[in-house]
């Protein structure tokens, strides 16, 4: 049987880890998409979803570390990953640049995540076969 032609996805995650299942469902979906030969053009963290980008998340050792699992996945497949700037700054998610700009003492967002605007969401949406929104279930 012929396999279907490869397609591309933009994945928007709006549910935070440890308060929703959204990051896990999105990760399982993204892994399956890549196994099937498709491409993930962009992972865009929006609203509470930006918490997934925090390097400071320190879950108990017997629980899944969703931020770490996502980072490994994004790095190993070199997927552009964006943390929405407006959502991030309000919630205390800062990279080095923003941390200096707002004179804060730490930065919890590093590569592979970039802090950028909604333009990244729109551009990847327009360039992908499908955009999926992984919202919290509450």
């Amino acid at each position: 049987m012929d396999s279907p032609p490869p397609q591309s996805f933009a994945l928007v995650i709006t549910g935070a880890p440890y308060s929703s299942q959204a990051p896990q469902t999105a990760l399982n979906f993204a892994e399956a998409a890549i196994r099937a030969g498709h491409k993930v053009n962009q992972v865009f963290l929006y609203g509470d979803g930006v918490h997934l980008a925090s390097n400071f998340a320190s879950p108990p050792s017997d629980e899944s570390d969703w931020p770490a699992l996502w980072r490994v996945f994004i790095e190993s497949h070199q997927i552009p990953a964006t943390c929405c700037v407006a959502s991030a700054l309000r919630r205390g998610l800062l990279d080095e640049t923003e941390s200096r700009r707002y004179e804060k003492t730490g930065a919890n967002v590093t590569a592979p995540y970039a802090i950028a605007g909604l333009g990244e969401w729109l551009e990847s949406t327009l360039n992908s076969s499908r955009t999926l929104y992984f919202n919290p279930d509450h």
């Binding site: 279907p4 397609q7 996805f9 399982n28 979906f29 892994e31 399956a32 998409a33 196994r35 099937a36 498709h38 076969s129 499908r130 999926l132 929104y133 992984f134 919202n135």
Partner: peptide, 19 residues
Amino acid sequence: IGYEQLVDLTLSTDKVVCW
């Protein structure tokens, strides 16, 4: 279905609505 079939489903319809 599994995640693989979910991926196929999202591509087999023209429009996906996420609730």
